[in-house]
Design a binder for these strands. Sequence first.
DNA 1: GTCTATAATCTGATAGAC
DNA 2: GTCTATCAGATTATAGAC
Lengths: 213, 213
Amino acid sequence: MRSPTDAPENESRPSRREARRRQTRAEIIAAAWLLVRERGLAGLALRDLGGAVGMKAQSLYSYFESKADIYDAMFHEGYLAFAATIDELMAEIERDQPPGAEVLRRIAHGFFDFCTSDPVRYQLLFQRTIPDFVPSDESYGVAVASYEQFTEQMAAFGLTDPEVVDVWTALLTGLTDQQISNDPGGDRWARVIDQATDMFLAAYAPDLLDTTT
Amino acid sequence: MRSPTDAPENESRPSRREARRRQTRAEIIAAAWLLVRERGLAGLALRDLGGAVGMKAQSLYSYFESKADIYDAMFHEGYLAFAATIDELMAEIERDQPPGAEVLRRIAHGFFDFCTSDPVRYQLLFQRTIPDFVPSDESYGVAVASYEQFTEQMAAFGLTDPEVVDVWTALLTGLTDQQISNDPGGDRWARVIDQATDMFLAAYAPDLLDTTT
DNA sequence: GTCTATAATCTGATAGAC
DNA sequence: GTCTATCAGATTATAGAC
């Protein structure tokens, strides 16, 4: 099964074959994102995807078990990107201790921009609209970890009540959703993020709100 | 073309043939809703739909020009139901003059319940997730009229600033969206509607908020 | 208005040669 | 790992008999 030049799987440095395989997988996923942005999430066809990376559709099965497996890889990658975005925003919080209203506003913009910059990704990650797709345990784990990171963010502002966190997530996804659905490419709800954040702060953390402005 | 028993088309009373045709169309649409709730919005197959009403798929073309035409009829019917819901809530406002916080809370619950009671309908009406479907001018008109009715509702509370209305719609759709996506069938975000409404009122119409509770 | 027949096309997936 | 060949099925839609 394993050629002499291959390193054992549990070693940190992957074999050259493994490395190339990974790269090809990444290429395929990248091409899938492009296609999906053009023809919609459900419109992904393996024929087109194969063509986009210069191989026949059947050859994709050397890299992925099924079409659902491809969606899962996209889901996984999407949540890694989401986690990275949260990390960046987390760094902003730590830079500004104790965190004030301006940081929460930037967090709101960060989430909003992440979502609206790629509506199809938003659809895959946050909505349950693609039929019969259930993320694998591993991918789901990344998703759960992201959410926990998110609640940690809120805790940094002293907001630990789960119901308050739910109001905050509802507010953020609502702004995002309206932007994507009713003003795609525009900024109608982007313009309203700051005052929505202040509305939230006024109700749940009024002491963080600078009353001078 | 027209049998002697048929009334002219422009008369208010439709001919018996027209009446039956309409009824069959309504039956087809009703069956389509059932199917779509089971297999997803994009999973609607004309074969199944024909079977569900006891005819071959091809015969559906006597009632609808295309599959998109069927989606359009569903979209139309969905917005009529939405308009009816708004009307009911509007009646509540008029019953309680001047309208107070409790009425706005009931409006929020009304919208929330309308959406979450039928997630597929919500997807068709309020999200742009079904590929290549563009509502006809007539159906779109019903949708626009509903939105105008909605803004009138807000005006009854003295809330006329378009940006404030946008914050309100974001809040409502956010609660709805989170409920559908992250706790389908549950009540996690339903439980938080009242405090979210009060948060909104405190920021934009504090005088409506009863401070006793 | 409903049917049969069929067109024309797309789909994901497998077997096996090389 | 990539290919050819092919399966087995789905899809919407049209033509024409009755």
